[in-house]
Simulated assay, not measured.
Amino acid sequence: MDPESIRAGSRVHHGGDPDPDVLDFSANTNPSTPAGVDDVYADALEAARRYPDDDYADFRAAAAAFVDCDSDRVIPTPGGLAAIRLVMELELEPGDEALVPYPSFGEYAREVRLQGATPRFVRYDDCCDLRQVALENCSLAVVCTPNNPTGDVVDPDDLAAFAARCAEAGTTLLVDEAFLGFTERPSAATLDRENVIVARSLTKLFGLPGLRAGFAVATGERRDALETARRAWSLGTPAARVGAYCLRQDEFIRATRSRVASERARLRETLDAELGFDVCDSDAPYLLCDVGGRDVGDVLASARERGVAVRDARTFRTLESHVRVAVKDRDSNDRLLAALGVGAGDTDDGGGAS
């Protein structure tokens, strides 16, 4: 990272509420975890008395099977954001330019700047339409699928075509698939192109964001460089073992995808019909809502008074009248709707989150 850029940098606002008495809809994590995780974690904690095996063979094998690639292409990282930083440290130098989507995850621009590089912002839904000439001055291009906070997925054929144009321009393509596990869409890891690097997060899909487990997928010289550059013991033993276990829980994953799809459709219809919110179409475990004539601050405060935290989406570039809500289980989603005013404001007393 560039020392001067670090001194000039700042933190980025995220969702997630630390108050255990609040039902948190500001972070997009699964409210459920796979059965058996507690036992795997307990065994791993005992094994954590020794340093992890830095090869992470079992974790790599589980991750590779999950995204359909060879295990030697998997680079273990402590979360998806760690994979993103590792890629940017590899690909960017002071004075470089990186194509960054908006509105999208705020850490992209921050991480670009921490390397002393400059983010060039492009509408997220225009990124994959850029031609080669627009990419030639970019060392790196970022695509988020599904995009956060809008929830759109990129068509795999469009992404493959964009990756080819990036290769022709000498641009590395970083594909952030933090939420793609909630869908049945194929990973960009299947492209197996040397200019494409994928970043994955495990812990959102499996309801364990505090575990900090993720990975990158790369090939050729970039794979070798990432493997060399990653920190030794980059995953703790509990994260590696629980992560590998979760990635193999096929029935849990299928059930999660089905529930999210059903509840997302129900939430969207109700928010539109009952509250008049303009809700973006989404393939992700969250919905971006334009609250229209309402004051965003009032919406947030009212929900909070009823024990529910909603994400203030005004922190995303160009969004001025939006909130983002996670998609959880049916009972929790009903509490969200009540806190937002569905059903004439009839809510419970805002007690502890379930």
Rank of each mutant, 00 (worst) to 15 (best):
D283W: 05
A188R: 02
A117N: 12
R294Q: 15
S71T: 11
S32P: 00
A303D: 15
T219D: 11
T315A: 10
I84P: 01
G307M: 09
G293T: 14
D19N: 14
D155T: 01
A42G: 12
S258R: 15
L99C: 10
R200E: 07
L300D: 15
R110A: 11
T318L: 13
D39S: 15
G220H: 07
R223W: 06
G243I: 05
A309C: 15
L81I: 14
D2F: 06
P101E: 00
F59I: 10
R330P: 12
S201H: 04
G307V: 04
V122P: 07
T237C: 10
A35H: 07
G297A: 14
V143H: 03
P3S: 01
R259Y: 06
P52C: 08
T219Y: 09
C280G: 08
L247E: 06
P209I: 05
G79V: 11
A188L: 03
A303W: 13
P209E: 12
D224G: 11
F25D: 06
T203Y: 05
L208Q: 08
G36A: 05
L226V: 06
D17K: 02
E177F: 03
F215N: 03
L287D: 09
P76R: 04
P209L: 11
T190A: 07
G350E: 10
E177T: 06
P31Y: 03
N30Y: 03
R193V: 00
R60T: 06
A218G: 11
L86A: 12
S354H: 13
P31G: 02
A216D: 06
T347V: 06
A309W: 08
L173H: 09
N147M: 08
A313V: 14
A42E: 15
G16L: 12
P146A: 00
G207I: 00
V291F: 11
A326Y: 02
G116K: 07
R60M: 11
P34S: 01
R49W: 13
D192K: 10
N195L: 04
A47P: 09
V308F: 07
V342D: 09
P119H: 11
I253S: 10
L336P: 04
P78Y: 07
V112C: 13
F206T: 00
A109S: 13
I253N: 04
D329L: 05
V112T: 10
R185E: 11
D58S: 11
R131S: 10
Y245I: 06
E305H: 15
F215K: 01
L140H: 10
A48H: 14
A239Y: 11
A65I: 00
A134T: 00
P209G: 08
T219R: 12
C138K: 06
D281H: 15
D38I: 05
R200T: 01
P20R: 00
V308M: 09
F121Q: 07
Y108N: 10
A98T: 01
E111I: 14
S282F: 04
S201G: 01
T315L: 09
A109W: 02
G207D: 02
A169H: 04
F59L: 13
G345W: 07
P119Y: 08
G351R: 04
R314F: 05
L45G: 08
A63T: 03
I75V: 14
P3Q: 02
T219I: 03
V217P: 04
C144M: 07
H14S: 09
G36C: 09
L135F: 09
V154P: 02
C127M: 15
R123E: 12
R200Y: 05
L205C: 00
P3T: 01
D290S: 11
D283E: 15
A167V: 01
P149L: 04
R73C: 13
G9Q: 05
G79D: 14
